[in-house]
């Protein structure tokens, strides 16, 4: 054995092999891990963990309604070349399944190495009981999908992302971990600031157009009296609207919350009946110009609401 190792030919071969391996390692280090997220806010969280070691893109153009998203050919190209896909889950981006199947990228299919469901570690709210269709795993009512609006859930989501990135790219594991810790540190500081900003609004009643805010409300102890659009796409009935207006007036609702893509007239109608202000909040990055990344998204929402609370209560 020792003789074999000692022979110059074998030594040369070993050296060549080592050089090749080292070169491959360098090359690998340079090629960035390509990750495709469904939404801009998830992409922002992925970048918070991956830093410049990953190349992250997202599919739904910022500010568009995720439910009415229509994929384009470029999206398939993106998925084909990606090493990881990051989705919201909880039936929020169901259209992705079809796109993934079409992309033919094996690693990205459900259960594949590059498939990351950001919701796996999140404690879900509003899990419905009853009235759920046949259990094919796609039934609605699995829970409210807007979990990223609770900054504390960003910890769980970045944890899931970190675990996946470390698995896909072990060489950079340390870097990813350090990135995430630095992000969480910033997040904690901001969360304390946000909590203080919204302290005045604790328990003060709000009305929302769509049921987007339970996670956000839970974190900052806000109280949503009711929802204008109780079923997606169905306009409210007169009795429902009348009840909301009456409740809102009685409880002195502080603000009617809507997102930019939701009809302004219904929110304004209720605002005029209750004396509350309409506050436009963003559920996603890029939905408003101020929400450029995850932290500024939460920051925008907190400040917009805090401004509404700062105004005197309606009569």
């Amino acid at each position: 054995m020792r003789a074999a190792l000692g022979s110059p030919l074998v030594l040369a071969r070993l050296a060549a092999l080592c050089a090749a391996l080292a070169f491959a390692g360098v090359a690998h280090g340079e090629a960035k891990l390509r990750l495709v997220a469904t939404t801009a806010e998830l992409r922002s969280l992925a970048v918070a963990v991956g830093g410049d070691a990953i190349e992250a893109t997202h599919l739904i153009p910022g500010g568009q309604d995720a439910e009415s998203f229509q994929p384009r050919p470029q999206d398939l190209v993106q998925l084909r070349g990606a090493k990881a896909v990051l989705r919201v889950g909880v039936d929020y981006d169901l259209w992705l399944d079809r796109l993934l199947a079409q992309s033919g990228n094996r690693d990205l299919q459900r259960g594949g190495a590059g498939y990351i469901d950001a919701s796996v570690d999140v404690a879900l709210l509003d899990v419905r009981a009853g009235g759920v269709g046949p259990g094919d795993g796609h039934a609605h009512g699995r829970g409210n999908p807007h979990y990223w609006l609770d900054p504390a859930n960003a910890e769980a989501v970045t944890g899931t992302i970190l675990e996946a990135l470390m698995r896909l790219d072990p060489a950079n594991a340390k870097r990813y971990e350090a990135n995430r810790l630095a992000f969480l540190k910033r997040l904690d500081a901001r969360t304390a600031e946000w909590t203080q900003l919204l302290a005045a609004g604790r328990g003060r009643p709000l009305i929302a157009y769509h049921d987007t805010w339970p996670y956000f409300a839970r974190r900052f102890r806000l109280r949503f009296l009711g929802i204008i659009e109780t079923r997606a796409g169905v306009a409210p009935s007169p009795a429902h609207l009348a009840k909301l207006a009456a409740d809102g007036k009685r409880e002195r609702v502080s603000a009617i919350v809507r997102e930019p893509h939701e009809p302004a007239r219904d929110a304004e109608f209720l605002a005029s009946r209750t004396g509350a202000a309409v506050v436009v909040l963003a559920s996603g990055v890029d939905a408003v110009p101020q929400a450029r990344d995850y932290l500024s998204l939460i920051d925008y929402n907190v400040r917009a609401l805090a401004a509404a609370f700062a105004k005197p209560e309606p009569r």
Binding site: G63, D65, P260, H261, A264, D286, A287
Partner: peptide
């Protein structure tokens, strides 16, 4: 950019 939702209305 953002705000195109108004058109839908």
């Amino acid at each position: 950019p953002q705000g195109a939702e108004h058109i839908r209305q």
